[in-house]
């Protein structure tokens, strides 16, 4: 499965547009992490626990989008967009969406 944020794939042409596919994931970090992060916040720098949390979330969202694309028999997702919104304090939603298509190689 090709996933790209380009509008088209060089050297390939779109034979079928299959509509929007999307994946989302909401996650919160646990109480212990929150405490450590608030201490780290005093001094600045990377909050690795949050970086990991959001990365895990992003992977799950991507995976869900991929499953949707497979279920409509696409072989690529074009123009992929990520959006992050903080849903509650300490929890964030990662949302990813794109257009599922069938590509075919051009000679």
């Amino acid at each position: 499965m090709d996933i790209t944020n380009l509008e088209s794939m060089p050297g390939k042409k779109i034979v079928k547009h299959l509509g929007l596919v999307q994946g989302s994931s909401v996650r919160a970090k646990h109480a212990g992490r929150d405490l450590l992060s608030s201490i780290k916040n005093l001094f600045g720098g990377e909050l690795t626990s949050y970086t990991e949390l959001l990365q895990e979330s992003r992977e799950e969202a991507m995976d869900r989008m991929l499953q949707q694309a497979k279920s409509v028999e696409a072989n690529a997702i074009l123009n992929v967009r990520f959006s992050t919104s903080s849903i509650t304090q300490g929890a964030a939603e990662i949302y990813v969406y794109g257009t599922a298509v069938q590509l075919e190689a051009t000679e």
């Binding site: 999307q22 989302s24 996650r27 919160a28 646990h30 849903i87 929890a91 949302y95």
Partner: peptide, 19 residues
């Protein structure tokens, strides 16, 4: 869910329905 961290499954349907 927020106490343990990790996926908050109870908000998933809310967001799915809204979108």
């Amino acid at each position: 869910h927020a106490f343990f961290g990790g996926p908050i499954t109870s908000y998933e349907t809310l967001l799915d329905r809204s979108r």
